[in-house]
């Protein structure tokens, strides 16, 4: 799949933002006043910034409100509802924390659940696609949720949680990469089933329909060199998990915490680029690509 910067930014930033909102909703940290304002402002910048980035890849962003209508069948529509719900509820929670010096616990819990639901629905947009076998696994939502929670814990300054969660994401990320290696083969889809010509022999793409590119090849046929992917995975693990975990074992100060957060975000961005770039869409088979 084409690794579109808008979608990489969206999933990374809004994942972090809703992760932070999750912890704020549960009352960690339970700070109020200006400190709470800074935490909430950061969460909203990330979450809303990510959602804004996601509209950049729309052909007609002016019709985006129509995306709220099909929640009964569409994960993208459900995501829209959950995101707005989480932002509204957590806005009220933030109001109480910043101006009234109180944490409305019940409202905070609802906001936390909606924040998790937003990340879950985002991940389901990718997970539901049978056409992209690498994404079509239960590990995908687990991966998105744990990334969001780990990033949220890091941003919320919940060091103990961050340590545990970073280890969990690292394990899930490795599991996801390993499972992804043979996902296309396991899906059973090949050029033989795509053309139905398997019973008479081994098909090979001989002539494409045209000499140039088209929407399908630009959007869904993106081939990343395996050697590059391996290297990038290593870099992602280093930035997203290794460096933050090492920093978390040191004595806390704000500069180091900032380095840990920035390193983690850089690592997640690389991992998310790979999430798209390495994913093979079965339509590539028709063009002789995997």
């Amino acid at each position: 799949m084409h690794p579109a910067p808008s979608v990489i930014l969206f999933t990374t930033l809004s994942g972090l933002g809703f992760g932070l909102l999750f912890f704020l909703g549960l009352g960690y940290p339970g700070s109020t006043g200006w400190v709470a304002f800074v935490f909430f402002a950061l969460a909203y910048l990330l979450a809303v910034g990510g959602l804004m980035a996601s509209t950049f890849h729309l052909g007609h962003p002016e019709r985006a409100l129509k995306a709220f209508t099909q929640w009964r069948s569409s994960w993208l529509s459900r995501e829209a509802w959950c995101a707005v719900g989480a932002l509204v509820v957590m806005g009220l929670v933030g109001l109480g924390r910043v101006f009234f010096d109180t944490h409305w616990m019940a409202l905070g819990m609802i906001g936390a659940v909606l924040s998790v639901a937003t990340v879950l629905t985002t991940s389901m947009i990718y997970t539901q696609l049978k056409t992209v076998p690498r994404w079509n696994t239960p590990i995908t939502p687990m991966l998105f949720l744990s990334y969001s929670a780990a990033g949220g814990a890091l941003l919320a300054g919940q060091i103990d949680w961050a340590r545990i969660l970073l280890c969990i994401v690292a394990a899930l990320q490795l599991a996801w990469w390993i499972a992804g290696e043979r996902a296309l083969e396991r899906s059973g889809t090949s050029l033989a089933t795509a053309t139905g010509l398997g019973p008479i022999g081994t098909p090979r793409a001989f002539e494409p329909p045209h000499t140039g590119s088209n929407y399908l090849t630009r959007e869904m046929v993106f081939v990343v060199a395996r050697s590059h992917a391996k290297l990038l995975r290593l870099v992602a693990v280093l930035f997203a998990f290794a460096i933050p975990l090492v920093i978390l074992t040191m004595t806390f100060n704000h500069t180091l915490a900032g380095v840990a957060v920035i390193s983690h975000i850089a690592g997640v961005l690389i991992s998310r680029w790979l999430f798209f770039a390495e994913a093979e869409h079965v339509v590539g088979l028709y063009y002789g690509q995997r």
Partner: peptide
């Protein structure tokens, strides 16, 4: 009603849907 998100083209295994570059 189409917002041009492209998700339907991702969901189609056959490559039957194409986003028009001019009309989006």
């Amino acid at each position: 009603d189409c917002i041009g998100c492209g998700l339907c083209a991702w969901a189609c295994p056959y490559g039957a849907r194409e986003m028009d570059s001019a009309e989006k």
